[in-house]
């Protein structure tokens, strides 16, 4: 089976000299949901930004068989939907409808198709009543779901979610997890939430100093790196 994402020896250094990725190897296969664990600054978010060419490091990275290069970016950005950590960064249009329609309009879709996709995606996340509302009138959980609808409206094959349940209250967290469980796309989830990973992920990868230090079942990775509260209280 051909992987949806293949990264080999990926390296990236920020302008301030921090080496965020240091020879990262990673693969994602169709149907997989992979949780990315690792300390802050270990390169998880930097890796997500590489998937859609927002950062460009050294080494190879392919999405759906296409190298992440400028000429393929329009196709790749349709195939990979990124949910950013802070929904306020993602909801920049004046109404929920306009925000979800932003991606389909950039794809050059017809008016009727844009309307159909917007309403379908809002329905998928349980926010179809909120189409006319302004993003700043929404709760944190609602914002996150609308941001997800905006990503789904691109009809992506891969979802890359950066700490999707951060800042959400328990009901908001549960609602989002239920929605994510229903979505058929392959997923990469950057998270510190082990329970979330247990509920959603088929596999976990542990990032350390810009590399994938290990890959395996969630509980195995958590146990091996003692990646839970015991590490803190020890």
């Amino acid at each position: 089976m051909e992987p949806l994402i293949r990264a080999a020896g990926l390296r990236y250094r920020y302008d301030d000299g921090a080496q965020a990725l240091n020879g990262l190897d990673f693969v994602l296969y169709p149907g997989e949901t992979v949780a990315l664990f690792g300390p802050n600054g270990s390169g998880k978010t930097t890796f997500l930004l590489h998937l859609v060419g927002l950062l460009a490091g050294e080494g190879g990275i392919e999405v759906c068989g296409l190298p992440v290069e400028k000429r393929h970016l329009p196709v790749i950005r349709q195939k990979v939907g990124i949910l950013f950590q802070d929904s306020d960064d993602q909801l920049f249009m004046p109404t929920v409808f306009d925000d979800v329609a932003f991606g389909p309009l950039n794809l050059g879709l017809e008016r009727e198709e844009v309307h159909r996709r917007v309403h379908e995606c809002l329905r998928q996340v349980g926010m179809d009543e909120a189409a006319a509302r302004a993003p700043y009138h929404l709760s944190a959980g609602e914002k996150r779901r609308v941001a997800l609808a905006g990503v789904l409206a691109m009809n992506p094959e891969i979802l890359a979610l950066d700490e999707p349940v951060t800042f959400l209250d328990p009901p908001g967290r549960s609602a989002l997890i239920e929605i994510l469980q229903r979505l058929p796309q392959a997923k990469i989830i950057v998270t510190h939430d082990i329970e979330l990973a247990r509920e959603l992920a088929t596999r976990a990868v542990f990032f350390s100093q810009g590399r994938a230090a290990a890959s395996g079942p969630v509980d195995e990775i958590v146990g091996r790196f003692q990646w839970d509260t015991r590490t803190v209280t020890r």
Partner: peptide, 9 residues
Amino acid sequence: HAMLARGFR
């Protein structure tokens, strides 16, 4: 970044 990721040109 969020705009570019959704196909803004």
